[in-house]
Design a binder for these strands. Structure first.
Lengths: 326, 326
DNA sequence: GTGAAAGCGCTAACAA
DNA sequence: TTGTTAGCGCTTTCAC
C-alpha cells in the first residue's frame, strides 16, 4: 500500500498531528524532530496525498483548460505558456479538448466542476452564454468573448485586420481575398473581417475583393485545402490573400506552389497568429502576443480564485511581421 | 457553498446513503425515489465531489502526461489522440511539460504521485533509469525507451530510416545529409541514424554523406535554422537531405527557398513524423502512426491500472508518404 | 511542544 | 428498500 502520514507517525513514534505540522511547517517544532520526520518520509518514499488535502481545503490547485484542439499550433503554443506560468504558481493543468463539440464541452465542464478544479480557462466556445454563466467557477476566456461579464483576454483583432489589409494595399494588390474559418464561431475573428472590409471599401472601382469562409467548425486542413484551391480556380487573377490564420496561409502558399504562382511576385500572402510553423515558411503575418495571452489568462484566473477583481476586457497589441511572402 | 450529498438528502428527506446509491445506481431503488433525487440534484445544480470519491476509492481517473513540449506539433497531435481516447475511457488528463528540464520532470512526477494519478504516460526522458523505476505507478513510455522493463510504444524508427534513405538513393542523390536533434537524447531516433548509415555505407566512392546534429535539448527553431544554414554553407553541393523531424525539414525547405535552390530538382528533402504542418508544405516524409501510438499508450496504461499484463515493447509500422519535395 | 478528536464529502459494510 | 456507522488521509481546533 501507499505510505500515509500515519505510517510516518508510527515510524517516528509521534502523532499524526505532529507529522502534519512538519509537513505544513506550522507551530513550534524542534529541529531534531523535523529532521527525524523528514528522514522517515524520505526513507519511506512518502508523498502527501493531495486528494485528501484538496478535500479538506476545498482547493485542488488544478485549473481546467478547455480548448477546441490542442493539436492546432496556436493552441499548442498558448498552452505551453499557460502550463509554464501555472506551474510557477503551483497549479496543475487539466487538459480538455472540446473538438468543437457542444456535448463534449458541456461534459468537460461538468467533469471539471466535479473534479473541483479551482477555475477554468475557456479557449472554446460552443455553448450558449447562459450555460457559461451557470458554471459558477472562476473563469477566463481566451481568444473568445462569451459575455461582457466574463473576463476575456484577446489580442487586438481589429487592428490586426487593419495592419494586414493595409500592407496588401500598400503593396499594390488589386484583387484581394480574405479567407477565414466560420465567422459566426468567433466574434473576435469577425473583427479582422470587419477591419478588412473597412480598409478595402475606400478603394477605386477597379479594385476587387473576395471573402471566403469555411462553414465547418473543426480545423480540417483538407477543408482548408479545398477552400483555397476553389478560390484560385474561381479567381486566377488574385494578387493578394489575407488568411485569418497561419495554418490557412500555409495552404495558400501550397496552392501557389502547385499552380506555379510566384510568391510574393504574383500573389502576396499574409497570415495571422505568428506561430512558429509560419516562421518556418518565412510567412508574413500578424503576430499575436501568444505568451502574454497565456500568462494573463492564468494570472487573471488566479486573481479571481483569490477573490480579487480582474478586468473584464483585456486587448493586447498585435504587430506585423513582414517576411518573404509579401 | 457548494452543494453536497447531504443537502440533497435533506431536501429529499432520506439519508445520504440513499443518495449515494442513486448516484452509483446500486441496490434496489424505487423509480419514484430515483426521480425525486435526480430532480433535486438538477435543481440544486449538484455535482458529486470527485475529490472525495477519489480519496475513498484510491482512484482518481486521472492520467498524467509528461511531454517535453506540447507546442511541438508532433506532441500536440499525439496529445490530441491521447486525450480523446482517455476521455472515451472515462479518464482525464493532467498535462505536464518538462521542457527537457530534469528538475521540472522530477518535480512533476512527484506532483503527479501526490495527486494520486492512476498512471503516467512519459513522452519525456531526462532522468536516470533508476529514477523511473522508483516511480512505482503504472507507466508507459511513448516514443522513448527508458528501460526494457517499462512498456514502451514507438514506431519502427529503424525501418523509417531505411525507407527515407532508400528513397533518396533511388532518386539518385549523390550527397546526402542526415540532420537530427541530439542523438544522445533518444535511443529511438538513433535507430533512424543507424539505418541511414547502414544504407549509405554500400555506396560507391563518389557518394558522400554528412551527419549533423544540434547539441541542445529544446526544440529551438532558431537553432534548427542555424544548423541548416550552416549545413548549406559548408556543403553547397548537397542534393539530398533526410531530416529527422518534419519541423527540421521545414527549415531545410526554407533555406532552399532563400538560397534559390529548387526542390526537388536540385535538392530532395524528406522529413520524419507526418504531422499536418508538413502536409501543408507537400513535404515528403515518413509517417508515424501518431493516432495509434496515442491510443495504445492509453490502452496499455489502463490495462496496467487494471492489473493486466501488457507488452513491454510495441513497435508500430511507419510508411513513406511521397509528396512534392522529392 | 505535542496529542486526541472531529470532520472534509463520499462509499461500503452491516443492520433493520 | 433504506439507514447507521465507520473510515479514506489529511488538517485543525482545543486540550494538556
Amino acid at each position: 500500500m501507499v505510505v500515509t502520514i500515519k505510517d510516518i507517525a508510527e515510524k517516528v513514534g509521534v502523532s499524526v498531528t505532529t507529522i502534519s505540522r512538519v509537513l505544513n511547517n506550522r507551530g513550534y517544532l524542534s529541529d531534531s524532530l523535523k529532521k527525524k520526520v523528514s528522514e522517515a518520509m524520505e526513507e519511506m518514499n512518502y508523498q502527501p496525498n493531495e486528494v485528501a488535502r484538496s478535500l479538506l481545503r476545498k482547493k485542488s490547485h488544478i485549473i481546467g483548460l478547455i480548448l477546441p484542439d490542442i493539436s492546432h499550433p496556436f493552441f499548442g503554443e498558448v498552452t505551453k505558456h499557460i502550463e509554464a506560468f501555472a506551474y510557477d504558481q503551483g497549479y496543475k493543468l487539466m487538459l480538455c479538448n472540446s473538438l468543437h463539440h457542444k456535448k463534449k464541452e458541456k461534459e468537460y465542464i461538468d467533469l471539471l466542476r466535479a473534479s473541483r478544479v479551482d477555475g477554468i480557462i475557456m479557449g472554446s466556445h460552443t455553448m450558449s452564454v447562459k450555460d457559461y454563466m451557470s458554471i459558477n467557477l472562476p473563469l477566463v476566456t481566451l481568444d473568445r468573448q462569451i459575455s461582457k461579464s466574463i473576463p476575456f483576454i484577446a489580442s487586438d483583432n481589429y487592428q490586426g485586420g487593419v495592419l494586414a489589409t493595409q500592407l496588401l494595399l500598400r503593396k499594390k494588390c488589386r484583387k484581394i481575398a480574405y479567407l477565414s474559418g466560420n465567422l459566426r464561431l468567433s466574434l473576435l475573428a469577425k473583427q479582422r473581417h470587419d477591419a478588412f472590409l473597412e480598409q478595402v471599401s475606400g478603394q477605386d472601382a477597379q479594385f476587387q475583393f473576395i471573402v471566403k469562409q469555411t462553414d465547418l467548425n473543426g480545423f480540417k486542413y483538407k477543408e482548408y485545402e479545398k477552400l483555397v484551391s476553389g478560390l484560385f480556380q474561381e479567381h486566377p487573377d488574385l494578387d493578394g490573400v489575407f488568411a485569418s490564420s497561419d495554418m490557412l496561409a500555409l495552404q495558400v502558399l501550397k496552392q501557389c506552389r502547385r499552380l506555379g504562382k510566384a510568391v510574393p511576385d504574383q500573389v502576396k500572402v499574409i497570415g495571422y497568429d505568428g506561430i512558429s510553423v509560419g516562421d518556418a515558411e518565412d510567412l508574413t503575418t500578424i503576430v499575436q502576443p501568444i505568451k502574454m495571452m497565456g500568462e494573463l489568462a492564468v494570472r487573471y484566473l488566479l486573481l479571481q480564485i483569490a477573490g480579487e477583481q480582474v478586468p473584464l476586457e483585456t486587448i493586447l497589441p498585435v504587430r506585423l511581421s513582414e517576411k518573404a511572402t509579401t
